[in-house]
Design a protein around this nucleic acid. Structure first.
Lengths: 195, 195
DNA sequence: TCTCGATGAGAACGAGCGTGCGATCTACGA
DNA sequence: TCGTAGATCGCACGCTCGTTCTCATCGAGA
């Protein structure tokens, strides 16, 4: 990895952190340059536009997300254990300082067309697909009711994550995690075999 | 209502609409002035700062929210009917063009201290309190399990709203409303007397 | 040692930002 | 009808934005 590549990595790390608190649009080149101890133009040279920077921030974050959340969870046993692992990992991801960049970007860009929004949509779809697939596997394993809808499960699980985000970050409510876990158990109960 | 008051109202209406799509911070005085066919300074004279404008936008929206969502729902019969009415009304509110300004502001400002954030926090707390109270009433009526936690109910219901927002506005998913309603029924099932 | 591409600094740009200040226009009570 | 207070405008301010240029530095290969 050359020197340039290393700085680029440093920049993207800082940018992810910054974007999580002020949003992808709220993040400015000047602030980012200051926080990385680079000149505006020096930083800018690594990306040819702000939009390219935003896209690379998302790509960078997605790489980390797969490595820290998705892959480890897929190591768990098929079925309910894997669903639990995925939930746990995502909860940890959301709990990191600044919260989840995909969650904030999703809300920020929901009404602003463009390549960045397209990318966010793709990532969100990927995440929901992952959830649905993992749930579907669990259904095949016989852990969940045969008539339970994987996409509906993904819808409801993601809702828990959103609510967690709001309680924890906006309201500063310390019961957020407990509530999220409890909601998760309720959700599992509702899709389990016996009723 | 004097002329000034009327224009102020017009401005706040336009501002609510604008803020829902670009965020309270993304909204600029220039753009807002253009969309109301006022000069920047003419518009600015109604508010003494951008922050004051943001606060008044929230207050304005809250007035409409109470009138269009909370009050009508409180007219329904105590207990489950009232909970349903509240859910329905909030769903309609979220479905309006641009979505729910409180939802987007909540995500936008979760990490940016200041009076505007404080206001958003207060509004979000009020909303959760309303949900919890209405649910509590239903519990007293014997519609819900005695050990069901109103705040937990509010947490989970709000999660459904968030997920609805995401599916509908970000993903453009037409099944969003159906999924939200289905999730709501599941939630009701989980808190009902018989198990 | 010399050269050259990669890396970054520095200064500057046009545009748009929030904000303020007088001057004008307009509606309404005396 | 007139006077005036309030509503609105035109203009300009200092600043920051994203972006673009030129130029210095540095390290690796010839």
């Amino acid at each position: 990895m050359g020197k340039g590549e290393a700085t680029r990595e440093t920049i993207l790390d800082a940018a992810s952190r910054l974007a999580r608190t002020v949003g992808l649009s709220g993040m400015t080149i000047g602030t980012l340059a200051a926080s990385t101890e680079l000149s505006k133009s020096g930083l800018y040279a690594h990306f040819r536009s702000k939009e390219a920077l935003q896209l690379q921030v998302l790509e960078h974050a997605k790489g980390r997300f797969v490595a820290e959340v998705v892959s480890p969870a897929l190591a768990a046993a098929r079925g309910e254990p894997r669903v639990r692992a995925l939930f746990d990992a995502k909860l940890r991801w959301n709990a990191q300082p600044g919260g989840c960049i995909f969650t904030s970007s999703a809300m920020e860009l929901d009404d602003r067309p463009g390549p960045v929004r397209d990318r966010v949509v793709r990532d969100q779809r990927d995440w929901l697909d992952t959830l649905a697939t993992v749930f579907h596997t669990g259904r095949t394993e016989g852990h969940f009711r045969a008539d339970a809808d994987p996409e509906q499960f993904a819808f409801e699980l993601d809702g828990i994550m959103f609510s967690y985000h709001s309680f924890k970050r906006l309201l500063g409510d310390e019961t957020a995690e407990a509530r999220a876990r409890r909601a998760f158990e309720t959700l599992l109960d509702s899709v389990r075999e016996a009723r």
